[in-house]
Design a protein around this nucleic acid. Sequence first.
DNA 1: GAAAAAG
DNA 2: CTTTTTCAACGCCGC
DNA 3: GCGGCG
Length: 317
Amino acid sequence: MTSDEVRDGVTLTNLDQPLFDDAGATKRDLVDYLDAVRDRVIPVLRERPLSVVRVRQGQAPFMQKNVPSYAPGFVRTVTLWAESSQRRVSYALCDDRRTLLWFANQRAVEYHPALVHAGDWDRPTHLVLDIDPPSAEAFPQAVAAARLVGRALADAGLSGAVKTSGAKGLHVFVPLEAHTTEDVAAATRALGVRAERLDPALATTAFIREDRGDRVFIDSTRSGGATVVAAYSPRVRPGVPVSFPVAWDDLDRITPGDFTVHTAAGLLRDGDPWAALMPEPQRLPRDLIEEGHTIPVARVQAMHEGKRRARARRAPS
DNA sequence: GAAAAAG
DNA sequence: CTTTTTCAACGCCGC
DNA sequence: GCGGCG
Ligand SMILES: [Mn+2]
Ligand SMILES: [Mn+2]
């Protein structure tokens, strides 16, 4: 009647507790799901500095980058200098089952790997366009916006794979040959703007929420030091949905809630659709990169406006 | 979940 | 010694 | 060192 267990040498505790408020799942459901898909999720985490989102019932979720000093020795880490906090941060590299199980026992629900491999700091492996609809109800619009991205890619001679984020929207991934972070970020901006231009009433690249209206945000900022939730990762949301690969042709027939910690392993059977749907690594066209370098970084512009607004508030006209 | 601080 | 509290993020970059 | 956002 104990809810504890040892698996692959890792002690798992409180397995019958609710995972978090409104999860509709226990900690055991998380552990069993991750263990069932380990041979598909570990390949997307391997050798990548990892951030996780942990959550405990009755508490707010929090993101964890630095691996706590109490972590067991089998958890591999890589140490990076964090400019903003002026300190060293030890990121985990989740490349084996024990590490994955240890994180699961830590109530790490979401897995956000970097877009680079450790040691290859200026060679992102993927270009990512993040499709964020204004609400969960607008998922069909997110699908339409993803198709705009698909057209922009095709027009540039590129192709990508798509997955649900597990939350409201979608992620489009394009595997890359060797390019610098700077060039990939530029190409991402250019693709975002090109997709937006295909249907400006549906999609926007506006970084300020208020400026988006009811349009779908095509987020080109998932590059550089940013992370993106991994394929197959659960999310801290009611029902514990998971980020799940979908064929372009199937997008109209699915909804993010179809894939949860309860259903996803069964749908996958022995398959690895993320690996299967991913095209070969691609070289970015010169003109796409150059176009991107003329587009300002969305966040920075937005920050200036925010600063201006704050100043105006303090000293009204 | 674990360590540090408080009782 | 037991109970309660605390902690667990980053980058983007111009002003 | 702040601002908005993910
Ligand atoms: Mn998103
Ligand atoms: Mn986003």
